[in-house]
Amino acid sequence: MPWHDAFPLTRTALIAGITGQDGAYLARHLLQAGYRVVGSSRDAQSSDTSRLSRLGIHQDVELISLAPNDFRSVLKALSSIEPAELYNLAGQTSVGLSFEQPVECMESIASGTLNFLEVLRYLGAPTRMFSAGSSECFGDTQQQPATEATAFHPRSPYAVAKSTAYWQVANYREAYGIFCCTGILANHESPLRPHRFVTQKIIEGVRSIERGETHELRLGNLDIWRDWGWAPEYVVAMHRMLQAPVAKDYLIASGHTTSLREFVRLAFVAAGLEPGVSIISDATFLRPSDLKYSAMDPSLIAADLGWKAKVTPAEIVQRMYDEVLV
């Protein structure tokens, strides 16, 4: 039966970037929903599949090599797999690293997104596509919660690349009728977070203090505020967006803003310690530009799709400290 006529009973999902935090949790969620899950990384033979293994699903997913910034690689993958749903979670994920590697950041995020969209247009495929956006695109919200209608003001190479990808998705949806949408994701955490992220650095630092290995915690600017959520909840929102009758962009966030200083305090509470340790603000961890305050209003996705974050910041920190994966 031709691809454009119907999908098989077992729906196939392709997750670009399956070996990352979100990719692993999304793969587990889709497997539980009865999907055939195919995941990609640049080199499937040498990719770090430890997160898939930690969730106990490494043997349940199919891994392929795919370079999002290579049109032919994307074309080959989509033509052979014929996914009903495509989740583009690939590309550079670190704001800090984007200042050091801005070209790689733009190519991996913006060029990769464009190739997925253009291949879908070229094939005339009915595949529904989710693209991972970022609340970083809004810049500093000045203590006013951003909504889907808030103008972008990116202040990092990462945010510029994500903003570019967002408008590419919007253009292909409007110009070519492709079912594609962007989930504008606020910060979301779990024990699967890479070590370079500040939240994981805090958890590991407090663990070292609890073990008596050090007596200080070195961080960058503690006076920043973010909307932190629980990653396993956020992948449910991604999936739900592709089940909607109409493709639409949504802000995926908890709606609660917490300071990094409070995140540190909660980490000490999780360890059963008093935060009397010397917390040092180290200039080497500061970025060329940073957002002081980022607040999000996720009321639209709650109203349209019935999705709402439930895990509180204190629960997030405790789960990270205890390495709870669910």
Rank of each mutant, 00 (worst) to 15 (best):
R121E: 10
P145F: 09
H239W: 12
L63N: 08
R54F: 00
C181W: 00
A132H: 08
H58C: 05
I64G: 10
D43Q: 12
L123I: 05
A295C: 11
S111A: 12
Q21H: 03
R207H: 10
E148W: 10
E210M: 12
Y172T: 05
V37Y: 01
G306N: 11
G183F: 01
A159K: 05
Y122I: 09
E118H: 08
M129T: 13
R207C: 05
C181K: 04
E85R: 08
S41G: 14
Q318T: 10
L266V: 00
I209F: 12
A13T: 03
T312P: 00
V236E: 14
S47I: 07
F138C: 08
F116N: 06
G177A: 06
H256T: 14
P145L: 01
A13F: 09
T147C: 06
T93Y: 00
R287K: 14
P298N: 03
L291D: 08
S98D: 08
L31H: 13
A271L: 05
K310T: 15
Y158T: 11
L63T: 08
E274C: 02
S41H: 07
Y158S: 11
L222D: 01
G39D: 07
A27M: 02
G255E: 04
G112T: 13
T312C: 04
P298R: 09
S294A: 11
Y321S: 07
D43L: 07
R240M: 13
C137D: 03
G212M: 10
G23I: 03
M129F: 04
G56V: 10
E136N: 11
L114N: 08
V38C: 13
T113H: 01
I279Q: 04
S40F: 05
A165N: 05
S254T: 15
R287T: 06
L75K: 10
P313E: 09
Q143N: 15
L89T: 06
L260H: 00
P245R: 09
R72L: 15
A270W: 02
G39P: 13
T93F: 00
S41D: 05
H29Y: 15
V246C: 10
S299C: 07
I18T: 10
D5A: 06
M1T: 12
Q200I: 04
E174R: 15
Q45I: 02
T93V: 12
R42T: 13
R54A: 11
V119S: 00
G177L: 07
